[in-house]
Each structure stands twice: as C-alpha cells, then as structure tokens.
C-alpha cells in the first residue's frame, strides 16, 4: 500500500481519533518521540531520536501503584495504562529493541504487567533507513536498515510517498482499517543504496566472552569511563530498573525508575560490600550482559547497533573499539 507524503498528516489525524500516537517531533534542534496531537507535528526527516523510544513502553519513571492510609487500613490504587498506542516511524534498530525488551519483560518465566499491557496495545510502525548514519552498525548485530523485526507495519520512503507494508497480523489489520491505495513498488534500489558503513566483527565474540571474565584486558578497557549513565539511559535495549517509594505522610506511590549498571549504587549491598567495586567490573558487566548473558538466556544479542552510546559518551569510549579490542586479544592470554 502507498501513502503520499502530503497525505500523511491527514492519515495521522485519522489514527489520532482512535489511538495515542507517538512520533518523531523536532524541538530545539533535536528529534524526540512525543505524543502528538496533530499529524503536522511529525518530522520524518530525521536520522534518529536523541532518546530511544523504549520509554514509551518502559517509561524512565513509572508509577506502579499508589496507596493511602485510610481509617480501616490502606487503600491501594492500581495503575493501568491501557490506552491504545501507535508508535509511528521508528527506526528498524529501535523497533528491534522491543523484541529484546520482550525477552526481558514477557518471557516464559516472568511477565511484567506494566510493559506487557502497553506492548499488547501498541502498534509499532517501523521506518526504513535510506541513509544510515556513520555510527550505525545494525548490520553487525543481525539487523539492517530495512529489518522489519519488531515492527507491525513497515514504511519505506520513496520519492514523494511511503510504501506501507503490514508485517504482523496486528499490523495488517491496522492498516486495512485506513484503506490506503494499493501498490507494491520496487524498493530494491533504495535498499541497495542504504549502506551501513560501520562494522563490528561479532564472530566468535561470544565464545571469547565465555572465557575471558578474568582476562587482564578488562584492566585497561574501562580506564577512561567516568561511570555516568549516558550510554545505558540512551540505549534502546538497556532495561534495568530500581524500585523506590515516593511517599509523604500517609500516602505515596511505588515508582520504578531506570537504573544503570554503570553506577556503583547499582550493586552496593546493605552491608557496604560492593561486588562490582570499580569501573572495570561495571564496564565488563555492560558488555557481558549485552553480548553474552543475554545471548545465553534468550539467544539474541542485546544490542541493536543504533550508535547512540557512541555519539553521546562524554569521553568517546566507543563500544565498537571496545569490542574490537576484545576480539583482537588472543584467546586464553592472561586468563
């Protein structure tokens, strides 16, 4: 199906009649996913958003429930975000990140009700990358600029229109409702010209990480890390959180906030002992979690190659270089 670029705002306005729509909006020179109120707000001329769209389904700060002491006990108000949502025009890397969050939040052992409900009620509209950025390395992590993984509907940008494909049943049903003109243009040339130049060799990385936990290489890799959470909070797949009470007097809320393995507090025990006492253990954890533990558990790498951590690290600690350094080290050395 096709939609002309000029007609897109009208289509979005129609969708807005039924759904909350989150789409890229340009503000102060930066693009972020925002809840829109009109189709004209949307800016699809963008490379990627500063913050990852994971926050739409897994907010940075989320009230789980609220409580209040009343005369005969405690009243608990459960909070349920059951609104129907559409995330419009997210890049394939970010769409794929939801398949990773799915593994963490709705797997066989554990189903997170907050994430799960939102996820079930959300239609994800992916948007192919005609011009991947210089820090993108999606093709190295089993993805690519036109990967439809995680998307229910997929858009490909043509000259004056978008080619709209239904990917999942949910997506096909969704677009059928809006009766777009038929058409299946040849997109092969666009796809061929979208080259992801940056590459990271992940072949055999997992096997190295399986055995190099005590390797000396970790002693130097972390050295410039300042231990902030710019990488983790801007990562579309990082999903650790911390639960706190925000209460005053007789009432309050239980809130969960994103947390980051880069902070010492993340693993600090009540006794004062910290099993990850320095940046070395924390950087190792971040790499291990993404490229080993997650793979052990869910058979996929917890990195989508969006490049946000590369662009935003205050000290330019580039994950590509870090992974290359691990790869280049002869296995067994220093173990």
């Amino acid at each position: 199906m096709l939609i002309s670029k000029n007609d897109l705002p009208v289509l979005l306005d129609r969708i807005l009649g039924e759904y909350e729509v989150y789409a890229p909006v340009k503000e102060h020179g930066k693009v972020e996913f925002k809840k829109i109120s009109s189709g004209t707000q949307v800016c699809l001329q963008y490379s990627n958003s500063q913050k990852p769209p994971k926050g739409i389904l897994f907010p940075q700060s989320e009230k789980m429930f609220c409580y209040e002491t009343v005369q005969d006990g405690v009243r608990v108000d459960e909070i349920c975000d059951c609104s129907k949502k559409v995330i419009w025009g997210i890049r394939p890397c970010d769409a794929k990140s939801f398949t990773i969050l799915d593994d963490a939040f709705k797997n066989e052992q554990y189903r997170d009700p907050y994430y799960y409900k939102r996820r079930e009620n959300t239609v994800i509209v992916g948007f192919g990358c005609n011009r991947p950025g210089a820090t993108c390395f999606c093709t190295s992590v089993n993805s690519g600029p036109f990967d439809t993984a995680g998307s229910d509907v997929f858009l490909t940008e043509l000259e004056d229109k978008y080619y709209v494909e239904g990917i999942t049943e949910k997506g096909k049903e969704f677009i059928a409702r809006y009766q777009l003109p038929d058409g299946s243009p040849d997109t092969s040339r666009i796809k061929e010209s979208a080259v992801v130049a940056s590459k990271v060799n992940l072949d055999g990385l997992k096997e190295k990480l399986d055995v190099n936990f005590y390797d000396e290489i970790w002693d130097s890799l972390w050295e410039k890390c300042i231990g902030c959470a710019a990488c983790t909070y801007l990562c579309p797949t990082c999903h650790c959180f911390d639960i706190v009470e925000e209460a005053e007097g007789g009432k309050g809320c239980r809130v969960r906030n994103w947390d980051a393995c880069m902070f010492p507090l993340f693993t600090l025990h009540g006794s004062g002992h910290n099993p990850r006492p320095s940046g070395k253990e924390r950087v190792r954890q971040r790499i291990m979690h993404k490229f080993k533990y997650f793979q052990d558990k869910f058979q996929q790498t917890a990195c989508v190659g969006c490049g946000r951590c590369i662009k935003n690290c205050p000290v330019n600690l580039d994950i590509r270089i870090l992974l290359d350094a691990i790869q280049q080290r002869e296995s067994g050395e220093g173990c």
Binding site: S61, C228, A229, L234, D242, V244, E246, W258
Partner: peptide, 30 residues
Amino acid sequence: CYACRNACPMCYCEECFVDCTAPQWIGKSA
C-alpha cells in the same frame, strides 16, 4: 544520567546527596 556530575573533577563525594536514601533528599525520578 549524572554525566555532568561524573565528568566534573570536583564532584568526588563517595556518596552523592542524590543517591542517599536515608534521608532521601530529593526524588529519584527524572
């Protein structure tokens, strides 16, 4: 993300006041 604090050479407190939980000086939510 506390990049500002961690990038600062003068911000070296063992425990930053934002990380304290007892007492909790300010909310943890962003």
